[in-house]
Write a protein that binds this DNA or RNA. Structure first.
Lengths: 646, 646
DNA sequence: TACTTTGCCACCTAAGTGTGAAGC
DNA sequence: ATGCTTCACACTTAGGTGGCAAAG
């Protein structure tokens, strides 16, 4: 309870701790982004959008199909439709049941200096892509809220405001670019992505703050060259059940047990009568074996490759889609707009993302989405309400009582509330920091500040960073959408699969932590691209104001925390890593945004406090996050950007 | 001794079995290719070629620097010089000493159904690249000759003509494309490439015939997109000391022992007093430990990644460079030209590649090369004469007497001789089959016959396949050369590193055999590209004649061998793999070529027979090889070409 | 003291190696 | 009987897991 604002809050259903906050958080910022998205979306020919049905002011909205948005957007702004159409991607989360099991308890992911994989592994199945077109698939992990947590009395509770955001990195799937056919052939796994708390990480791992909540995101970009990524449309998918709290050591024994029971690498800790396992009673759940078995089965299929297991069976979750075409629009820029930011977490699970009612134009679209959601059963796959979760968890026969705050927490509430104080722009910033960076053009790190090949694009750093998150400002849907990317121009004609045959060379190993290999993509890069697009398309661009503050110099109330182990310069060797002190002052200040939830959801959440986080501290922190995301990114770039080794 | 022609030949220094034949073989076909290369080469601005010194009729020539050739070529034919220049690649083989140790004995590589790595690992150090330009690095393994061997009485001897060539695959380094800076940062390893004897392989592994000799090759292509590979210039580097015989089980105990002593994974078989090792006395050589130690040291350096060890120290071998600019030329096409194909194997080691005296125009260049070689000490690095080898081997304290034919064999002789009977075109075909295919655009395999995006390029399949090997028809040198690639046009402006951060995801694992990941690149693809270029540039194009024969239908004397385990259809599952019966009949017939050796070398080798292989059977087989390389490639493509898995 | 983070450890998966008997 | 290929094995490297004591 470090946080002065939330101190005292305890557990489930507390105004400040609504159950299943994670979902909210995500949907919240997604919703916020949405508004700004529509205006710029292009409409693919094959778009089969439906007329908007539900209004989006308060937020409620079902995940819409992209094409729908595209259509509308088309009218708004003329976008390049060249290669639009022909695809209508649909993404489902693999091992959904397993994720759900963790989610109910409150997923925790260990982060270590050397980098730790995620478990369950983030794996998605993609459908509806243009077989011949080439795509780049990526994922990143963004803050779910701006709070710091603590696990107290068997439950998670807010413990203050979030620490300064670490430079986020966009992780490009190593097979990128590859044809839609290839991507759809089998689930796309991201087990090579590693999490770390080492701010000086040189491997390109995703740096997270311990005791903070995060949301993994998946992106699909139609582009045949990584160089085009910056100018391309990002279709973002978020699976609420994948939110997790980063920890350096497991806090909830239930999580530990679930990990042990399902992660083959932890088999050694299973209670097999070998006199191990003391603390945790064997909470082994029936679904247990399934995961591993599936993994093995999967490995044997086709030309196995990969590694981390991942259950194939079970429900797959249709995510919320956020799309950011280049030249995308930005939602209302201005300050903490918001308002009815409170929503019912429960509803969130219904799989719908809400749009900020305060956003520029999205309202009607929100309705559209909602309708879509209700119509498209696939969108609801894997979606479950908190109540259901509760019921399930209670049914579980665990020797240990269900930890009070175990499942269905509500820090989300906090986050949610917090978000409501940010403008759409701010939310973007909030999300974007985690939007790009991890493995990407390492050469960028190697020198060029922002590259974008001179002349092609000119903007002030501030403007760029602010607008860069355009692809976050997209429509939210769980189904597929038509191609609407505004690629800078196809290179070669066809759709050549790029695979690089990980089969033989790349696959197996997880994170060999060779920065040389990683495709590092510092935020700045994408930022610029998106920003450029946005700038050229939208009139009232969002905050272009540059704020001169770094997490270390201009903190109002937010505490800058660095564990003794992470203090800049005190960490591992080469100080070429991220150095907070070097954050420049040329960054835009994000603006507040609204969250959107289904009306039902908001009804439930109405009792929450809305003002708590509405202080300058919140804004400052957001800004700082953004700044670090932009500036820190560059500095943290691995010194070695060479490939070869492999 | 199945081969009627060579039956009876026994061992070292026998006319038919000159020691260290491998070197010859390689240099032979390289030389043959050279002639045709020059005419088409573009001259980079920074070219610093030297005037030709030695004549090339009989062959002898030192490894020239590309730029030299480029310069000359410039005059011959105007090539796109857009991105020419700025780079002058120099490639050296890592772990040369180790390779030499194996080479002396007669390197053997085990091939298994599940795929086996090479040991020593093929690893090269690249220098002189344009830091900012992007390159694609690849490797493939081509037949060293067209003979089948048998290990009899402790020595290798010819046992007939080669079996039908398996579809070869070009293995694209997974980090491709990446900037020159990245590639040069650390040695480029290809340990993910796996060898197999499973003709139905779906992993994209390199399929080889057991008991046949092969030569690994390394290629550098300046291109920022894999899609441009087909239209780009290939700079090929060959390290004679890396020739090897594919086996399903080690034949020479010395090789086995050397492997055990140096491969960390075989450590369990080392004679550490654990009562193992019987057959092989501990031939452990002093240099032993070094390799492994180096590997470990290397792993710790920088952001380790990779895996297979590889000694960094010791001599690195400058290879013979073969370059094929697009719109390349073809050497004399006609039939078994040849003539003084006999050379002294010993000389080969001197590190110089000889050009075929019968080749079109190369003569003067050959001299130039020679001079270069003598001047550039780096070219001689690791180069050693057979005599030296002999001395070394004798110094080794092996309990077991040096197997008579163990080191310094001469099947090479056969191969050499054989090669002399082929026209340049034939040699090209001979090599090309192994030039492209392994991991590459899998989508190609997935459907499109040859793709090349309609309209961009039009040629008859036959012509294409014939000319496709253009990049083989290049100059031979050990040093660097300037950029001369005729890329189809740069996509984005800058030089973005492509890394994909294998660090995190790709690196570690070796060959997870996931076809989905491999970048499959069937020969046909490259063939077409090169062909197109050649066609547009050269007047008297080589064989465009389409031959209607498949290894199964039109075999004159060559026996079609398929072990019971490999019979098409009888092998592993899915028959989507390579099906010899499906080989089409539209392929060009390769033409003979000359080999080139230093004059000294030829003096020594003059006593060899030249006519032995000059029969139609040889030609047919070559053709068949080519055909299978082209047609088989497609069929053998892994059914699953999806990425994702990773 | 309370809470986190670190390091090292044992254990496990994944996969690379040659063996040696069996198969064809 | 010869010659080559296959396969189950034991052993090794590389690396993923949580435990746990110690440190901060």
């Amino acid at each position: 309870m470090r946080d002065p604002v939330f101190s005292g809050s305890t557990m489930a259903y507390h105004p400040f701790q609504a159950p299943r906050p994670l979902d909210f958080s995500i949907s919240a910022f997604l919703a916020a982004a949405q508004p700004s998205f529509f205006p710029a979306l292009a409409l693919p020919p094959s778009a089969l959008g439906k007329p908007p049905v539900e209004s989006g002011l308060s937020g409620a909205l079902g995940p819409p199909h992209h094409h729908i948005h595209a259509t509308h957007l088309h009218g708004f702004k003329s976008m390049e439709l060249e290669d639009a159409a022909k695809d209508n991607p649909k993404v489902t989360l693999e091992a959904k049941e397993l994720w759900d099991q963790f989610h109910k308890i409150g997923t925790e992911m260990v982060i270590t200096k050397s980098g730790r994989r995620m478990f369950p592994p983030f794996k998605v199945r993609v459908e509806g892509l243009d077989k011949k077109a080439r795509y780049i698939l990526l994922m990143d992990i963004v803050s779910a809220d701006d709070c710091r947590y603590k696990f107290h009395n068997s439950s998670w509770m807010v413990a203050g405001k979030a620490d300064p955001e670490m430079p986020k990195r966009m992780y490009i799937h190593p097979d990128s670019p590859a044809t839609g056919e290839q991507w759809m052939a089998k689930p796309v796994t991201f087990h090579k992505l590693k999490l770390t708390n080492n701010i000086s990480d040189k491997h390109g791992f995703t740096i997270l703050n311990s005791m903070h909540k995060y949301q993994p995101r998946f992106h699909i970009v139609r582009a045949n060259d990584l160089l085009k990524l910056p100018y391309s449309t990002f279709r973002t998918y978020v699976f609420p059940e994948t939110v997790f709290t980063a920890v350096t050591a497991y806090q909830n024994d239930k999580i530990t047990q679930l990990k042990i029971d399902n992660n083959p690498f932890a088999k050694g800790f299973r209670d097999t009568g070998n006199g191990r396992r003391e603390k945790r009673k064997q909470l082994t759940i029936p679904t247990l074996r399934r995961f591993e078995d599936q993994c093995k089965a999967e490995r044997d299929v086709g030309d196995s490759d990969t590694s981390s297991c991942d259950p194939v069976a079970g429900g797959e979750t249709p995510p919320r889609v956020v799309r950011s075409p280049r030249g995308v629009s930005r939602a209302c820029r201005g300050g903490k707009i918001n308002a009815d930011s409170d929503q019912e977490p429960e509803q969130l699970d219904v799989g719908s993302a809400t749009t900020d009612s305060h956003a520029p134009s999205p309202t009607r679209f929100a309705q559209d989405r909602k309708e879509q959601l209700e119509k498209d059963s696939s969108l609801l796959v894997g979606v479950r309400s908190p109540k259901k979760d509760k019921a399930e968890s209670q049914n579980r026969k665990e020797s240990e009582a269900e930890s009070p705050g175990g499942s269905d927490k509500e820090d989300a509430e906090v986050r949610h509330t917090d978000l409501s104080h940010f403008s759409t722009t701010q939310l973007q910033a909030l999300a974007l920091p985690g939007v790009h960076g991890q493995p990407f053009y390492s050469n960028l790190a190697a020198g060029q500040p922002l590259l974008l090949h001179q002349g092609q694009f000119t903007m002030t750093p501030g403007a760029l960073s602010t607008m860069g998150m355009e692809h976050l400002l997209s429509s939210v849907s769980t189904a597929a959408s038509l191609e609407n990317s505004a690629l800078v121009g196809q290179t070669a004609g066809g759709s050549c699969s790029f695979p690089l045959h990980l089969s033989q060379h790349i696959l197996t190993s997880q994170g060999i932590q060779m920065p040389a290999f990683g495709a590092m993509f510092p935020y700045p890069y994408t930022y610029m691209a998106a920003a450029a697009a946005a700038a050229s398309v939208l009139p009232g661009s969002a905050a272009t104001a540059s704020v001169s503050l770094s997490p270390f110099l201009s903190t109002t109330r937010s505490r800058l925390r660095f564990s003794p182990y992470q203090l800049p310069g005190s960490t591992t060797g080469l100080n070429s890593g991220w150095d907070p002190c070097r954050l420049s002052s040329r960054d835009p200040s994000p603006t507040p945004a609204l969250e959107q939830q289904s009306q039902a959801a908001r009804l439930v959440a109405n009792h929450r406090t809305k003002a708590t986080l509405r202080d300058s501290a919140s804004e400052l922190q957001s800004i700082q996050r953004l700044v670090s995301g932009l500036e820190g990114q560059r500095d943290s770039f691995p010194a070695r950007t060479s490939p070869g080794g492999e």
